[in-house]
């Protein structure tokens, strides 16, 4: 059977399941009420005095952070709890079809809720002369962002049979993705890498990380077969090195020149990476009407990564 057919069969069933439960209606009402009230009460739609939906889109990351995990938490947890996972995965389909089918159903549902915000567009169009392209771009960005969050919820949902745990996990991940690029946080981050303590902690963390990686590799290749004494000695050395790392800049020969420059560069690129990983920058560009291939790729990457992980989770953790 072609991938389209089996995926669509699953999507249809899943969509029907959404609308068969009151959750869909509660979600839609909640989303519409919150997005409207945030726009007018907190977003300063009128004081802005401009014919744009910036005040509307401004709140979308924060709304999605809670609402999308609520939609996505049941995707796989529910199948696990009911035992229907066993039924679904013994059908003659690829796991990837099922992952994609269920994700699409959730995404279409989110899209449906987003389309219902059309009175916003009518409102700005009635009050002024907005740029249709910018609004369309904002909607696309918002839709992509909801897809990225949904894929993350699908991932956390595939890890547990408990919907509440799945919900909390994905809210936390979405929150981190927002936070890393939220301007109050980024300004703190930028200040951080100028502080020497941040650099020290970074070096110490790097030492611990590398030590753990090397130990893991040695274990896996069974150069070091589970000897407790060797492990203890290993972590002892790591602890000493970590202490050295914490005060590396005080040790004359390490604290200057190329090494110092390297550490600072590393810190800077870490902060930069955190900002780039966040949804905020990418969504912000789109809702301002800038279509950049990199932003589209970003959302696509998050979705592909999270859905791929979902598939791996389902294949390896079935019991």
């Amino acid at each position: 059977m072609s991938i389209l057919r089996s995926t669509w069969t699953i999507t249809k069933r899943e969509l029907a399941a959404y609308f068969a439960s009151p959750v869909a209606y509660v979600f839609t009402c909640f989303f519409l009420l919150l997005s409207a009230s945030f726009t007018f009460l907190l977003g300063g739609f009128f004081p802005r005095n401009e014919a744009s939906l910036a005040a509307f889109f401004l709140w979308h990351p924060w709304l999605y952070m809670f609402l999308v995990p609520a939609v996505g938490m049941r995707l796989w947890s529910e199948e696990r709890r009911l035992g229907t996972l066993e039924l679904l995965l013994t059908m003659p389909i690829n796991t990837s079809h099922a992952v994609l089918g269920k994700f699409l159903a959730g995404w279409l549902f989110l899209g449906f809720a987003l389309v219902l915000t059309f009175p916003m567009v009518i409102t700005v169009a009635a009050l002024g002369d907005p740029d249709g392209g910018v609004i369309a771009c904002g909607y696309i960005g918002s839709f992509l962002m909801s897809g990225a969050f949904l894929a993350i919820s699908s991932m956390t949902s595939s890890m547990t049979r408990n919907q509440v745990i799945s919900f909390i996990l994905s809210v936390v991940i979405c929150f981190l993705l927002i936070l890393a690029g939220w301007s109050p946080v980024t300004s703190v981050l930028v200040k951080l890498y100028e502080s020497v303590w941040f650099l020290r902690l970074l070096v110490a963390a790097l030492v611990v990380f590398l030590s753990a990686v090397v130990l893991a590799v040695l274990r896996v290749t069974s150069v070091l077969a589970g000897s407790r004494r060797v492990s203890l000695a290993w972590w002892g050395c790591t602890a000493v090195l970590t202490l050295v790392g914490l005060f590396w800049d005080r040790i004359g020969f390490l604290g200057k020149g190329a090494i110092r420059g390297g550490v600072e560069l590393l810190a800077a690129s870490l902060v930069d990476f955190a900002v780039k990983v966040s949804v905020m920058g990418h969504f912000d560009a789109m809702q301002r009407g800038v279509v950049d291939l990199r932003d589209l790729l970003y959302f696509l990457t998050v979705m592909v990564f999270a859905l791929f992980t979902t598939g791996v989770m389902l294949k390896t953790r079935r019991a």
């Binding site: 059977m1 089996s6 069933r13 029907a16 009911l82 059908m91």
Partner: peptide, 25 residues
């Protein structure tokens, strides 16, 4: 037929069987 006969609770019997038939190709 898995243990405890799992099925999707919100579907009708006919709907459930139709789904199973469609997913079987």
């Amino acid at each position: 037929l898995p243990e405890n006969a799992p099925a999707y609770p919100e579907m009708s019997v006919e709907g459930f069987l139709r789904f199973a038939a469609e997913i079987r190709g």
